[in-house]
Each structure stands twice: as structure tokens, then as C-alpha cells.
Design a protein around this nucleic acid. Structure first.
Lengths: 189, 189
DNA sequence: TTGTTCATGTAACTCGTTACATGATTCG
DNA sequence: CGAATCATGTAACGAGTTACATGAACAA
């Protein structure tokens, strides 16, 4: 299974509704896992059936009722078993890179536009992660927080997410510059 | 569709057999796309049926016969259409990060081992990509090659792959160090 | 009054992974 | 003599995506 453990890990932060999880997994959950609402509602149902989480109904007036989920002891065991098992290296699987790989046979102007757009998105995510990191560590500085903070898991993955997006931004702008320069010089003649 | 265009892009380098592609996509195709042999044979069959590639049988004596595939004009059109369409940002989807996200509730020693193992794998990939890059640019230096080389697509994606793996290695070693330090200090008491 | 937020799902479909199958050759 | 390399696939299953459905409250 797959999403399963990502959801359990997310629920370590405390009670969440399907809707809240959907928002977190839409942004990318610090950029290491993405999932759609439908997937989450389905997974939450399965997790509850298997006794790894429990949900409690919260009745609301101005908004639709919701269900908040918590990890059970069985869920914690499952997470521990998962963490002990082996994990295979993952790749990135990005459409934009496929396009760059085909850059020599494809309309370059179009591609440059997409690269710049992507760089802007990456920039926005960097800001977002910066904010998350600041909120998580509170008053403490980073070294202090990592040494003695109570919940550092999401902080560490968020650091990875930010580094990834920085790399992403830099590569996109550099690649765009390279392609643009070649278009100007008209290499292929 | 998905793998489809990655295969077309890979075939821009010239004729390849399913087997050769399988090896390239096993390493990760410069770390941005991974696929298993079965997937590739299936995809090649579909691509040929749709007229986007053509295969020619090569009879061999000491080895099993093979089929070498080339992109057709229709295939090139398809690639161009794909490159013009929009691409959604992709996330990383890594088991190891899920485990780190759950680090506060999980056996840390185990996790540190996995992080170090992963750092070693990343290191190996960096070397591999370094070699590929050197081979692709030949005698020219990088700026020169990127300005005037004939096929720079795979070079650019390989740069991204290397940057990704460097980031990966650094994050794994740093995260392992953080978790190890906490285990020594026994934070949770 | 149009769009966004909150809140939850079902159904059909495509894509990716795991398991299985075959068989000769060459390297250590 | 066992393992890896070359070379190609089928079948079943699990995971992810797209499309569809509902409905009230609130902000621009």
C-alpha cells in the first residue's frame, strides 16, 4: 500500500477531517506526496474499516458536519512496521522534463514559457514552505528546534521540499536561459 | 497518456530496442522517469499500433532477435503537440519521506540506517550522471556544449537529475545526523 | 450573481507494479 | 556451475486520475 502510510503520518499531528487532509495533500504535503480528495476519502474509509484510525462526527451549524480522524494504537503499529520495512528509491516523473528531453525536436519558445511559469510556481512554494517552517519552529532557531523540538518529522520533510523547489526554480530559469540563447543564435542552421 | 511521450523522447536519440529502453528507464532516465520492462514492451506495442513509431527486426545469431524502434513523423507531431500542452507540477512521492514525517512515532535507529543507505545510493547516482554528462559533452566544456551542441535535451535533464541526487544525498545525511543526535540526547524523556 | 470555501462521496477508467514464463550465451 | 546478460512478453492486481454529484454559506 502507499497513500495509506502518508495519511497515518499526517494524522500524527492530531485530528483532521478528510477535507483538511485533502488541502494538505493538494499542496503536496511538503512536496513529497500528492493526492486528490476522492482518494483521501476512500483511503480514510478503508483505514477506519481496518481499525487503524477512528473517526468522530462533529456536528456544525453554519457548515456541513464533518468527521475528525485519529490514529489508533493499531495504526501506530502499522506505521512502525512500515518504517522498518525497506523503501525503494523514487524518481520525479515530471512532464516538463520529458519536454526538455525532447527540446531538440520541439517548439522552443513554447517550452521557455513553460519553464518560466514553473520557476514562478516553485518560487511561490519556497515562500510557502518558508512560512510553514517558521511557524513550526516558533521562537527557537533551527538548530535548537531540531535538537529539542517535540515534533520534527514534518519539519525535516519540509526542509527537503524547500530544497527541492529551490533546485527546481534554479534549473528552470537556467534551462530557459540556455534555450533562449540558442533560439537567438539559431544553432540548427 | 504518460510513459508514451517519455518513450518518444528517448527514441529521439536514435533506434533502440525494448531491452535497451528498459535499461535506460530502470536507472530512471536521468532520474525523471522510471519504468519496468513489461510496461515498455506494452507501450512500444501500442505506439507501433498507433503509427507513432516503427520497428524493424534485427536477426542475430549468438543472441535472440530484437526489434529496433524509430519515431515516425506522426510520432514527432505527437511529441510537439504534447510539448505545447500544459504540464502540471509533480511531486516526489517517496516512502522514505513518509517515514521521516513519522519520525517522532517510529524506531529512529532503523530510520537512520535507511537514510544512510539512501545517501550512498544517491552518491552512486551522482557519479553515474557525472559520467553520462562527460560522455555527452565530449571534448567541449559545458557552456560551449550547451550553446552549440546538437542534442542538448538529455544533457539538461541529466543536470537536473544530478542536482536532485545531490540534494537527496545532503538531506539524507543531514537528517540522519539530526535523528542520531536526538537519540543520543534522548529528547523524549 | 458568480465564484470560493466547507464537506463528502461514487463510478469508470487509465496507469503502474508484481508475479510468472521462456531460453540461449557468456562471464567469473 | 551459478549468475548475469540479452530479449520478449502475458495476466492479475493495486494505485492514481477524471468525471460526475450534492448543497449550504459567504465574499466580491
Amino acid at each position: 500500500m502507499a497513500l495509506r502510510h502518508a495519511v497515518l503520518a499526517a494524522l500524527l499531528d492530531g485530528e483532521h477531517s478528510g477535507y483538511q487532509l485533502a488541502k494538505a495533500f493538494d499542496v503536496g504535503m511538503a512536496n513529497f506526496w500528492h493526492a486528490l480528495p476522492q482518494q483521501l476519502y476512500a483511503e480514510l474509509a478503508k483505514l477506519e474499516r481496518d481499525g487503524l484510525i477512528t473517526g468522530r462526527e462533529v456536528v456544525q451549524e453554519a457548515r456541513p458536519n464533518k468527521r475528525l480522524f485519529t490514529v489508533t494504537d493499531a495504526g501506530l503499529d502499522e506505521l512502525r512496521r512500515f518504517a522498518a520495512g525497506q523503501s525503494k528509491p523514487s524518481s520525479v516523473r515530471d512532464d516538463l522534463m520529458v519536454k526538455v528531453a525532447a527540446a531538440d525536436a520541439v517548439d522552443t519558445a513554447e517550452l521557455v514559457g513553460q519553464l518560466e511559469e514553473r520557476a514562478a510556481i516553485a518560487e511561490a512554494k519556497i515562500d510557502l514552505f518558508d512560512g510553514l517552517l517558521r511557524r513550526m519552529r516558533g521562537d527557537a532557531d533551527e538548530a535548537e528546534f531540531l535538537a529539542r523540538g517535540r515534533r520534527i518529522g514534518p519539519y525535516l520533510t519540509c526542509l527537503r521540499g524547500r530544497a527541492f523547489e529551490r533546485e527546481n526554480r534554479d534549473w528552470c530559469t537556467r534551462t530557459a536561459a540556455v534555450l533562449r540563447a540558442r533560439a537567438g543564435a539559431d544553432v540548427r542552421r
